[in-house]
Simulated assay, not measured.
Amino acid sequence: MKVGILAGGFGTRLAEETEIRPKPMVEIGGMPILWHIMMYYHTYGHREFAVALGYKGDHIKRWFAEYNSLNGSMTVNMATGEIKRHGSSIPDWTVDLVDTGIRTGTGGRIKRLTKWMGNNTFMLTWGDGVSDVDLNKLLAFHRSHGKLATMTAVRPPARYGHIEFDGHRVVEFNEKSQAAEGWINGAFFVLEPGVMDYIDGDEVMFEYAPMQRLAADGQLMAFRHESFWQCMDTLREKTVLQRLWESGNPPWKLWKDQDQ
């Protein structure tokens, strides 16, 4: 099953990083978050990807073009130019890097992936978030209901403490309680080709009219994920992910280092 990843946005809320590179190339633990996402899908057996490019897409193309040649140690014979590589472990991926326009909306980018995804069920996510969602259970849920679209619904931790009042008296205070937050769209979709019919053009944002119409038609289902999920919209959130990585046990790292 092919996996589509949207990697074309401007990342304006992470401008400290995205002035020089696209958000999916911002590094966590020395590797782009896009790589982390792909490695996560890889651990569930997914090897074919289509990455929708836009803002600074050349950075992403260059990274993939150089990844094979620069991974691991190497010996260079300066006289002959011969290069011998040692100990590199390259994932067996096929990656379509698809130009989808600089200002194209998320819906438009998905629709531009149509010919790359084929007439089959496919997975899709944003190029700026990681999770420990069970992709096998997600896919089984999607296949069980027979609708066009499944999104992963998540409840992220509140950014601030949650307070309940009785007049001016605080009756309950929960510091960063997850339960205080409602369910939101966490991406990690499973979609049928018929979803493309709900996307009218390049400027369409998938999160608005297409998903609203899918819901109105009874074609959008939610897979509720209670465990870890984290996007990387801001520098603060990048720091959260970096600290999780440095802890030695980041929730999304299901792979072993030799699998990289």
Rank of each mutant, 00 (worst) to 15 (best):
Q230K: 15
G186Q: 03
G161M: 02
R159I: 13
A216D: 15
E175K: 12
R155Y: 07
A153T: 01
I199C: 05
Q230W: 14
L235G: 08
W252V: 09
Y160P: 03
W229F: 14
D202G: 07
Q230M: 15
W255N: 10
G194R: 02
V204Q: 08
D200Q: 08
R143D: 07
N136C: 12
R159D: 11
G182P: 01
N185Q: 13
A149Q: 10
E164R: 14
G146H: 10
L235E: 10
P156Q: 02
D202M: 04
Q219I: 12
L235V: 14
A140Q: 10
M232P: 09
G218N: 02
P250H: 07
K137S: 14
L191D: 00
V195W: 03
V204F: 09
A179G: 13
F141E: 05
W183G: 05
L138M: 09
L220E: 04
Y208Q: 13
V190P: 11
G167H: 11
E192I: 07
T234Q: 08
L191I: 07
Y208T: 13
R213V: 03
F223S: 04
K137V: 08
L244Y: 04
G248N: 03
N174Q: 13
H225K: 08
A187R: 15
M221G: 00
Q219M: 12
H225W: 05
G201T: 05
A149D: 00
Q212W: 13
R143F: 04
H142F: 12
F228P: 00
H168T: 12
I163Q: 05
F188P: 09
A153G: 03
L241Y: 07
N249E: 03
L148E: 04
Y160H: 13
E172P: 04
G186Y: 06
V154Q: 07
I184K: 14
Q212E: 15
M221R: 15
P250T: 10
K256H: 13
L254D: 02
G167L: 09
V154T: 06
D197G: 14
K256S: 10
T152V: 07
N136T: 15
K253T: 03
K137H: 12
H168W: 09
S247K: 11
V195E: 02
E181Q: 14
N174F: 04
L214Y: 09
G182F: 05
E203W: 11
G201E: 08
R236Q: 06
V133K: 07
S247R: 12
R243L: 11
G167K: 11
K253V: 03
S177E: 15
V190S: 11
W252D: 02
A209T: 15
M221C: 12
R213T: 13
F189K: 09
